[in-house]
C-alpha cells in the first residue's frame, strides 16, 4: 500500500495544475456573465479618472522636481500592469491576511501543492484586466518614440511586479504574528498604491530610504522609471537585488508564519 501512491502515474506537473487553477478561476468568474465585464470596465474608468488628476496638475506645472508628464505616464503604466497582473493571475495576493484570519488556509494545507503558490493562484479578479489594459495603453503611448526600450520596460515590469506581490505576501503574513482581521494588509496596500503613483523625485532623505526599504514603492515604480529615462546598469543591478531579496523575505515570513497558524472554526467556502 505504501508504494501505491508512489507508483501512481503523476503525469501532470505543476504547470498542468496552474493551468487548471486558472481555468477554474475563469469559470467561477464567468458564472455571473455581466459582473466580470463591469468589473474590468469599471477599473479601467477608475484608472482614467486618476490620470485626469495628473493631467490637470501637469497642465499647471510642467515638471515636478524634475519629473515630467511622460514619467508619470510610465509610472502609472508600470503600477497598473503589475497590479492588474497580480490581481488577475494571483488574485489572493492582497487577501492573505483575510484568508488567514478566517481559518481558510486549512484548505490549502490539506492539499499537496506548495501552500503559498496554491493560495495565490486560487482567485482571479477581472478588475485586473482593466488595470492591465490601462497600463498597456499608457505604456504604448509613453514608449511610442523609443520602441527599443520595450524589452527593458517588460523586464522592469516583471521585477516590479515580483516586488509588489512580495510586499503583499509580507504584510499579509504579519497577521500570523500580530493577529487582526486583515485591515492592516488592506491599509498598507492602499498606502503603497497611492505612494507609488507620486513622482519619486518629491521624496527625499529619510522618506526616500523608507520608500526603498520598508514600503518598497521606490523599487516598484521610482527606480524603473529612472532606468527607463536614463539606463544605468547599477540601478538595474539594484532592481535585481531588491527583487530577489523581496521574494526571499516574503517566502520566509510566510513559511515562518505558518508555524503560528491557529486555524479557526469559521465556515469557509471556495468561491
Amino acid at each position: 500500500m505504501a508504494a501505491k501512491a508512489k507508483t501512481k502515474q503523476r503525469r501532470h506537473g505543476l504547470i498542468d495544475f496552474l493551468v487548471m487553477a486558472f481555468k477554474i478561476n475563469m469559470q467561477s468568474v464567468m458564472e455571473y456573465r455581466l459582473n466580470f465585464i463591469i468589473l474590468a470596465f469599471g477599473m479601467f474608468l477608475n484608472d482614467v479618472a486618476f490620470l485626469v488628476f495628473w493631467i490637470i496638475v501637469y497642465g499647471k506645472f510642467h515638471t515636478i522636481n524634475g519629473w515630467g508628464f511622460n514619467n508619470i505616464i510610465l509610472l502609472q503604466a508600470i503600477i497598473a500592469i503589475g497590479w492588474g497582473f497580480a490581481s488577475f493571475f494571483l488574485g489572493n495576493w492582497n487577501r492573505i491576511a483575510d484568508i488567514v484570519s478566517k481559518g481558510a488556509l486549512d484548505y490549502y494545507l490539506t492539499l499537496p501543492k506548495p501552500v503559498l503558490l496554491h493560495l495565490l493562484v486560487t482567485r482571479s479578479s477581472f478588475a485586473g484586466v482593466g488595470d492591465m489594459l490601462f497600463g498597456l495603453v499608457l505604456g504604448t503611448y509613453a514608449l511610442s518614440s523609443t520602441i527599443s526600450s520595450i524589452p527593458l520596460f517588460i523586464l522592469l515590469i516583471v521585477l516590479s511586479t515580483i516586488i509588489l506581490i512580495s510586499f503583499g505576501v509580507v504584510i499579509g503574513s504579519l497577521i500570523f504574528f500580530i493577529g487582526g482581521q486583515g485591515e492592516l494588509q488592506e491599509t498598507l496596500q492602499t498606502s503603497l498604491l497611492l505612494l507609488s503613483t507620486y513622482p519619486f523625485s518629491i521624496f527625499g532623505g529619510a522618506a526616500k530610504i523608507l520608500l526603498l526599504i520598508a514600503i518598497p514603492v521606490g523599487f516598484i515604480t521610482g527606480v524603473p522609471v529612472l532606468i527607463l529615462n536614463n539606463f544605468n546598469p547599477l540601478y538595474l543591478g539594484y532592481m535585481f537585488i531588491a527583487t530577489a531579496a523581496s521574494a526571499i523575505v516574503a517566502y520566509a515570513v510566510f513559511r515562518f508564519g505558518l508555524r503560528r497558524y491557529e486555524s479557526g472554526n469559521a465556515i469557509n467556502v471556495q468561491i
Binding site: 477554474i24 458564472e31 465556515i267
Partner: peptide
C-alpha cells in the same frame, strides 16, 4: 464546515481540479 468544492461551480469542476 470547510468545503473543498467550489461554491459557484458544478462538482465536476472541483473534481477535475
Amino acid at each position: 464546515q470547510k468545503p473543498q468544492l467550489w461554491y459557484h461551480l458544478p462538482a465536476i469542476d472541483t473534481f477535475n481540479l
